[in-house]
């Protein structure tokens, strides 16, 4: 069980960059770190820092207005690339609960939801307007209503977003998929009895 995500109001910060890949979200060299140590410090590590490792003042996430922001807005295709869930750990450990972009990498999208982080797809034009607004005044408020599948943006516009019923139910209940699957043990055993999956593949289903 984790904390349910039903309605959520938070402050948003924008990164008007497309194709922020998982190698940018967390460079591979940090991924051997045990989960318990926290991944916040690795988020967008090489983008946020200058050559000496100091935080760049001109990077949106490093500015005072971004402090405490828990909603990240980016251009198209956020989280494309590798399957590393560490990309989501870095976001979640930095306090992000909601991500808004025109599209997300498929594996990243699934990984986010598994960690109680909600990725919201909105039309490109809406995101572009939102990014412009956040560039002028970062830290404005975004409200998400998961049961209603709506998001209220700064300025008051309300947009509907798509999420499948299964994941929505999981998010709202704070349930994880594994507990559900474990309750279906009889189905899994029945499948195995009927299909006899074996490592040598000598099976005609």
């Amino acid at each position: 069980m984790r904390e349910p995500l039903t309605t959520h109001t938070g402050r948003a910060v924008g990164l008007p960059i497309a194709n922020i890949d998982t190698d940018q979200l967390i460079p591979a060299r940090f991924m051997s770190t045990p989960r318990e140590e926290g991944y916040a410090r690795f988020l967008l590590h090489d983008m946020r820092r200058g050559e000496g490792g100091d935080l760049r003042e001109d990077f949106p996430l490093n500015q005072p207005a971004a402090r405490g922001a828990d909603t990240l807005v980016t251009a198209d295709n956020l989280g494309c690339g590798s399957s590393r869930e560490a990309a989501v750990y870095a976001l979640a450990d930095s306090g992000f609960r909601v991500l808004i972009a025109p599209s997300f990498g498929d594996i990243f999208y699934a990984n986010a939801l598994k960690n109680g982080v909600l990725p919201i797809r909105l039309p490109e034009a809406v995101v572009t307007t939102l990014l412009d607004r956040l560039a002028r005044a970062p830290g404005q408020t975004v409200t998400v209503d998961v049961p209603d599948q709506t998001v209220r943006l700064p300025g008051g516009a309300v947009h509907r977003f798509e999420i499948d019923g299964f994941r929505k139910a999981m998010l709202v209940a704070g349930q994880d998929e594994l507990s559900l699957t474990l309750s279906l043990e009889a189905d899994i055993s029945a499948f195995e009895a009927a299909n006899r999956p074996r490592p040598d593949g000598a099976v005609r289903r």
Partner: peptide, 9 residues
């Protein structure tokens, strides 16, 4: 490809 939560699953 799948993420770590899915690998555990």
């Amino acid at each position: 490809g799948i993420g770590a939560s899915e690998v555990a699953h």
